[in-house]
Amino acid sequence: MKDSSQHQKRRMLVVFAHPDDESFICGGTLAKYAGEGVDITLVSATRGEMGRRMGNPPYLNRETIAAAREEELRQACDCLGIRNLIFLDIRDKTVEFVDEEALTARIEALVRDISPDVILTFHEKLGGHPDHCAIGKAATAACERAGRKPSLFYISFGSAMEHPEPYGYTRDDIVRIDVSAHLKAKLAAFRAHRCQSEIEEWVWLPDREAISRFGLHEYFIRAVRTLPQRSGHDLFA
């Protein structure tokens, strides 16, 4: 017989493109829900091996950066409380060129296997980077095929969705997560991505000063806008 508490455990699937996406964009939210006992699975399409930041001063090269960024991501996951990490082994900066059907099928299989209550990914048009947009498009198609699109939310950058109207959304389409109690974990995850964050001097200031640079909220866009009104402050509501 399955343990009932395990059966009822809330699950989140996060489908991103690169190591550091999870920390730099929504680390506070991930730390919040992990701290509440949510079982989080993070999917990284690539290992970020084509990134231009090699440390400050540089200590990595094209041969060593992939392994370094993988290890940094594992450390960041520990900081945020993410228990499960999956790489899709796609070469960095080529996600838009892989077979779309095959990529969608891989993500759909994960959605069906994990059966998450909440799925996070990039918006296919507002993702900002071709890899972001491509993984978001495939994840959206996977959720549609698995019948899980109502569970899907798109990340947003900074406080852009505090005023979502210029992007074609209303405030009813946005979930605003209070991450003020989880900024220390977010900072630790930033610092874990050492080769990417060393160039940012503010990240390495004393904790209180560095934390003051973070916003107190992170914002998510509902993939399905026609559902009855739900909480604007909880992804699991």
Rank of each mutant, 00 (worst) to 15 (best):
F24C: 14
I211H: 05
S156L: 10
E209R: 03
G35I: 06
K149R: 14
E162Y: 10
C195I: 11
R145K: 14
E70K: 08
E162F: 12
C79S: 02
L73A: 03
E124H: 05
M161E: 13
W202K: 03
L120N: 06
G28D: 06
A17D: 01
L30M: 12
T121E: 14
G48E: 05
P116S: 05
F122S: 04
H132R: 02
K2G: 05
A160P: 04
R208V: 09
V38R: 08
L73F: 04
L13Q: 05
M12C: 01
Y167Q: 05
L205M: 11
R47N: 11
L110N: 12
L183R: 15
H7D: 15
M161W: 13
V98K: 02
G27V: 14
E72Q: 12
M161K: 12
R225D: 03
F190H: 07
D117E: 12
E200R: 14
G136Q: 07
I135E: 02
A223N: 06
E162M: 09
F153D: 02
A192N: 06
V118W: 13
I65K: 03
K93W: 00
M54L: 15
N61D: 15
G37D: 12
S151Y: 04
G51V: 01
L30E: 11
G55K: 01
P150W: 01
T94L: 01
H132G: 05
G55Y: 02
T41R: 01
M1P: 12
P164D: 09
R208Y: 00
T46S: 10
Y167C: 08
F220L: 13
I107H: 03
E198F: 04
C77P: 01
P166R: 00
G51W: 04
I135S: 00
K9A: 12
S180W: 14
F214C: 13
V98P: 01
K125A: 07
G127A: 02
P116K: 07
S5H: 03
L126Y: 12
T64M: 05
I211K: 02
I174R: 14
A181M: 05
T121S: 15
S197W: 01
E108Q: 15
H132V: 14
A138D: 07
D113A: 15
Y167T: 04
F16W: 03
S159K: 11
S212Q: 14
H18Y: 06
R62W: 06
Y154V: 05
L227F: 11
A76P: 00
M50L: 10
S23G: 10
D234F: 04
R222V: 10
A17F: 00
D20M: 06
T29E: 09
G128A: 05
S197P: 01
G37C: 13
L120E: 05
E200S: 12
D173R: 06
D21Q: 06
